[in-house]
Design a protein around this nucleic acid. Structure first.
Lengths: 259, 259
DNA sequence: CGCTGTCTTGAATGAATTCAACCCATGTGG
DNA sequence: CCACATGGGTTGAATTCATTCAAGACAGCG
């Protein structure tokens, strides 16, 4: 449960938006201009590498913001008694740490689930984006609102659903996000979380997650092999989860004119 | 549990920022210029009144955005089995409905807890703000991030804390927000929620909230009289809740220059 | 090859729920 | 002004879901 702290490698290779996943969340809201894509590409500083289980930044630290390049990261909060709650699983292309931007100290801890590459983003860079690219600013605002919806669903799930339903919702959420990264994503994925970590996502305990997984598998809803999850019955899983699939507004007429 | 739907009165009195609480969340982040205050004052359209228990907008409806003028509102999501989870208690000055802005349909239901006055805000008005007032845009972004932190804390509370601790955290959260509205707020407030509604906030059931309230009272942490709550031991309540008091960055150096 | 972290399964415990009865304040209509 | 209906709150007892404790299995890695 204790994670070693600090960066591991520091490649000074410059951040290139061409291969970077950074705009993948943005383009869900609008077709970006070259200038906008370029501006997004220059947001981050040098790319840094962290290995699995390393803490990228701890709650209470300076509230830095990062772009996640590759790998998975969890954002979690903890209590004095040692219990933790994962509040967000970050996938490549995610802005991380933004919720704490307006505070004097970070509220959440960012921990690498896999080997990851990230780049730090200074707030001045975001502020410059807000001055020069009003449409990108608006999209960043919408992305923050989207994250609120995700948190609202998580809260609903943890507050009002049983273990099996929470687990279904979580697996589907991850699956849907992977599909967003790659439209051809199959009904299967590697979930690089231990049962303990999944329990911290769902507000349950590892033993119960284990039993719940077994039950889902036994019901024929999923299949497990090592860390790989196959979704065998998407419809039933969605029914269990209890959430509709939401559609984003793309290129809304009211968005500011692009630069 | 069923709420009558629709607006009640429609005063066509124009929205005036002078008496409106609308900037109270904004000024927590920066001292605003006259031009900015004026722009915020012109955000909303006509003021509309809803009476207690009326549904302002239902999940699935068009994703409108509102400014809450006076009164309390809850934002909640519901499941097919009828269970509900309150995801946000809105106080005067809150922007409501923004999380659904980027979607084709509203994700949450807004229900008046008291008689309320609200004004609708068209997305074009927000987009115009983003074009013309980059600093206000940045602050709206930070406000959305602040809401994420609040949701993260709620998720941590519901996911990892027992009933008593959740209730303490909730009462403190409301108290802290009232203090933000009025720095001289006493250690006491009217909570216009039924036990059922509080249960929907905490992810518990009304009977258990009743028992938990009694226990907190018996422990001398609070005193109840009708809907009024007195906080008798703030320190112990905060210890129970398990969250630090977070400090906002005011007039951060990196904010865009004001217009 | 054996350590360690992770996962599984069983049994006992506990927190919260469910069901139910009752109380109380409020408000309404006869 | 009283009778009565209603919604909200309280309390008790039984049940259920999840936790805790514990032991064992398994895989991966040095």
């Amino acid at each position: 449960m204790l994670f070693v702290r600090g960066p591991v490698t520091t490649n000074v290779r410059p951040f290139s938006h061409r291969h970077a996943p950074s705009p993948n969340r943005f383009v869900a809201f609008a077709d970006l201009t070259e200038a906008e894509l370029n501006a997004l590409g220059h947001l981050g500083a040098d790319v840094v590498t962290y290995s699995r289980d390393k803490v990228i930044r701890h709650e209470g630290d300076q509230p830095d913001v990062f772009m996640l390049h590759s790998g998975w990261v969890v954002s979690s909060g903890s209590f004095d008694d040692g219990s933790r709650q994962v509040v967000k699983v970050h996938l490549p292309g995610d802005l991380m740490g933004a919720p704490s931007m307006g505070y004097t100290a970070a509220a959440d801890t960012l921990t690498a689930l896999t080997d990851v590459t990230i780049s730090r983003i200074v707030p001045e860079a975001i502020a410059r984006l807000f001055r020069e690219f009003p449409r990108l600013a608006m999209i960043m605002f919408l992305l923050a609102q989207e994250e609120r919806i995700i948190l609202m669903e998580r809260l609903m799930s943890v507050g009002r659903r049983r273990g099996a339903q929470r687990l279904s919702a979580f697996l589907l959420h991850i699956y849907d996000r992977l599909c967003l990264l790659d439209p051809d994503w199959p009904l299967s994925f590697e979930l690089p979380l231990t049962l303990d970590q999944i329990a911290d996502v769902l507000g349950l305990h590892a033993v119960h997650v284990s039993r719940t997984f077994s039950r889902l598998e036994q019901q024929g809803l999923i299949h497990r092999e090592h860390k790989r999850i196959d979704l065998l019955n998407l419809d039933e899983l969605r029914k269990q989860a209890g959430f509709p699939q939401r559609r984003l507004l793309r290129n809304a007429a009211w968005l500011p004119q692009p630069i």
